[in-house]
């Protein structure tokens, strides 16, 4: 995010005029826990993709292939809803995937 703009350069009242600019705001900065995808358990049912509030589940060729960590806030909803134990949460910096 550009933090350098003066009061003369920004829309009044804090209005956001460009739709979809949440893409420029990397909410992944907030994360303390990280989802880890366990590929061998995954049936690619897309339930995590439907439930993710930040659209951070990456899908390629109809397969769940990973998580966009620029936007994943680490809320753990994907882990909670997964019927196949294909996602686990780990504390950031404590365990690799």
């Amino acid at each position: 995010m550009d933090q350098e703009k003066t009061w003369k350069e920004i829309p009044w009242g804090g209005l956001i005029l460009d739709a979809g600019n949440a893409q420029e705001y990397h909410t992944g900065d907030w994360r303390t826990e990280r989802p880890v995808h366990i590929m061998e358990n995954c049936k690619h049912c897309m339930y995590c993709w439907i439930c993710c509030p930040d659209s951070a589940v990456i899908v390629k060729d109809k397969k769940m292939v990973g998580v966009d960590f620029d936007f994943c806030k680490g809320c753990g909803i994907c882990m909670k809803v997964c019927p196949f134990d294909a996602i686990k949460m780990v504390v950031e910096g404590e365990e690799g995937d």
Binding site: M1, Q3, K5, T6, W7, I10, P11, W12, G13, G14, L15, I16, L17, A19
Partner: peptide, 30 residues
């Protein structure tokens, strides 16, 4: 910036913390 102009969607009243709130108040002074 009317909300009913669906061709040009806008957001009213977003969160505005230490980084920009002061600038918006300065605009009101102006």
């Amino acid at each position: 910036y009317p909300l009913l102009d669906i061709e040009n969607p806008v957001t009213y009243g977003p969160l505005d913390l230490t980084d920009y709130y002061f600038e918006h108040k300065r605009q009101q002074v102006e």
